[in-house]
């Protein structure tokens, strides 16, 4: 199943996933999924635990070798020149940390050099201002609060001004105010740079706010795909959370349930 109805030209596609399969022994963790993320858009990858989100993101990041299928990122094959491709991408996840013993400034300096960022000092100062890091730039990363850590992780994720940003539950375990602040920064970054974002999240309100398109995975397959509005209309629901529950519990679309579709 193809996620997006539109078929933009290759040059306009940030991420193109075709017939992606990953098996672990007898288990098909990802079972032939295809989707496209056009440049400048935000795609939400949803699904319950074990649906295949993490494996899919792992394959896109090059951490997991697909059993079959193809992935093209920014129009290129990751197998040919992975390093240069990764220089144009970045990611953020609450399940990955930065070295605790290093200060925030030291961490950002190391990553600026890893991404070969020109004028790293200016870039770090710019990010410190954008993400309000100035007051704890010289504090050890391990001594920060969850909200501060997320801001630092996002600063690291944007240090190379990525054209494709992968986010794995970017606001998990944050208070609503901090989460809202983070979402606003992500919206700003996307608007200012035209970057593309692929985001895995369990927060449906966040997905509705940030994502142009949504792919819902279930048992390694695409169970539903479209814009949030399309999905809500198709399933006859007022919110993505209800759509998610319908998919998770195998309840089908409004038409399949014999209900009248909601007018857009």
């Amino acid at each position: 199943m193809t996620a997006l109805p539109a078929t933009p030209a290759d040059a306009d596609v940030a991420l193109d996933v075709v017939d992606l399969v990953k098996t672990f022994g007898p288990v098909r963790a990802v079972d032939g999924i295809s989707f496209r993320l056009p440049r400048g858009r935000v795609l939400g990858l949803l699904g319950g635990n074990g649906a295949g989100k993490t494996t899919t993101i792992g394959m896109i990041m090059g951490l997991v070798e697909p059993t079959s299928g193809t992935i093209r990122i920014l129009g290129r094959d990751p197998a040919e020149g992975r390093s240069s491709l990764l220089a144009e991408m970045n990611f953020e996840s609450p399940y990955v940390d930065m070295p605790h013993r290093l200060t925030v400034r030291q961490n950002l300096t190391v990553f600026a050099k890893l991404y070969e960022v020109a004028d790293a000092k200016s870039r770090i100062a710019e990010l410190a201002r954008d993400f309000a890091l100035e007051s704890f730039l010289d504090r050890r990363a391990g001594a920060l609060s969850a909200g501060q850590k997320t801001r630092v992780a996002l600063a690291k994720a944007l240090i190379n001004r990525p054209k494709l940003l992968l986010l794995d539950e970017p606001t998990a375990s944050l208070d609503p105010d901090t989460a809202d602040w983070i979402r606003t920064r992500l919206e700003d970054y996307r608007r200012e740079t035209g970057a593309s974002l692929l985001m895995a999240s369990h927060n449906m309100a966040e997905v509705e706010r940030l994502c142009d398109d949504v792919v819902i995975l279930s048992a390694g397959r695409i169970a539903a795909a479209g814009t949030p509005e399309e999905l809500m209309r198709r399933f006859g629901r007022d919110g993505l959370e209800e759509v998610f529950l319908d998919v998770a519990r195998g309840r089908g679309t409004a038409a399949e349930r014999g209900e009248a579709e909601v007018e857009a």
């Binding site: 951490l63 390093s83 399940y95 990955v96 940390d97 930065m98 990553f111």
Partner: peptide, 10 residues
């Protein structure tokens, strides 16, 4: 838990 950051970097 920094390995992911490094493996995902250039």
């Amino acid at each position: 838990r920094n390995l992911g950051n490094l493996l995902m970097s250039p």
